[in-house]
């Protein structure tokens, strides 16, 4: 299983039956493939519907996910405009938002929308999602492609949100942010020293820190 699948599988275990979940572009869209049996979620797509599902029939040009990829809907889906979509998001009606990150820090700050002077994709819905969702989970590979740390003491890139991130899941570890960064789980084969080597931010190790159970990998 590759890093992205390990991360998606672990995030899937954070979701409760019936949760309304918004999944960011890329890695988070893998999460529904790994839901444990008995867990059904309702996926919100910020371009205007609830009940996103896999593409089962021919693609419909009017039905895409928030990344613009053709998708399907499940029975019980609902379409709406962008004001309703973000009323659901900001109004606390979305239980979980799962997003990627360029940087995330021990204060729960997230940076994922611009690298000044280089790449400025824009924030899209990410600022509203991190402000309004009840549980903000960052799902990302632990380091950048060149091996630099992404989990920092303080983000250096422009922020998406201030102090809203609660959980970070990588292919090495799971952290909670609770008055600082707390290591809660290690992937099998990964040591605390390995994590420290790849993490710029200081963190405490939860007294209950466990190896992620094998059935979750």
């Amino acid at each position: 299983m590759n890093a992205k699948e390990i991360i998606a599988r672990r995030v899937a275990r954070e979701l409760k039956n019936g949760d309304v979940v918004n999944l960011g572009i890329g890695l988070p869209t893998l999460i529904p493939n790994f839901l444990p049996s008995g867990i059904t979620i309702i996926v919100q797509s910020e371009n205007g519907f609830l009940g996103l599902g896999p593409l089962c029939d021919e693609p419909n040009p009017s039905l895409v996910n928030a990344g613009g990829e053709p998708c399907g809907i499940v029975a019980g889906a609902a379409f709406f405009d962008s004001a309703m979509s973000f009323a659901l998001i900001r109004g606390g009606h979305v239980d979980v938002s799962v997003l990627g990150a360029l940087q995330v820090d021990s204060l729960g700050n997230l940076a994922n929308w611009m690298v000044p002077g280089k790449r400025v994709p824009g924030m899209g819905g990410a600022m509203d999602l991190t402000t309004g969702a009840r549980h903000v989970i960052i799902a990302m590979e632990h380091c950048t492609k060149d091996g630099s740390a992404k989990i920092l003491t303080n983000c250096t890139l422009p922020l998406t949100c201030s102090g809203k991130v609660q959980t970070i899941v990588t292919e090495m570890a799971l952290f909670r942010i609770n008055n600082g960064l707390v290591l809660e789980e290690l992937c099998p084969g990964v040591s605390i020293a390995d994590v420290r080597n790849c993490t710029e931010a200081d963190f405490t190790v939860s007294p209950n820190c466990i190896a992620t159970p094998g059935e979750l990998i």
Binding site: E46, D81, S82, A83, S85, F86, I89, R90, W113, G117, K118, R119, V120, P121, G122, M123, G124, G125, A126, M127, D128, G132
Partner: peptide
């Protein structure tokens, strides 16, 4: 769009999507 923005040929005002809708 990004190229023109960085070259200052185009002024881009980025607005959070939900804020833009409202």
């Amino acid at each position: 769009t990004g190229r023109q923005m960085i070259a200052k040929e185009l002024e881009v005002i980025l607005v959070p999507q939900g804020t833009l809708a409202e």
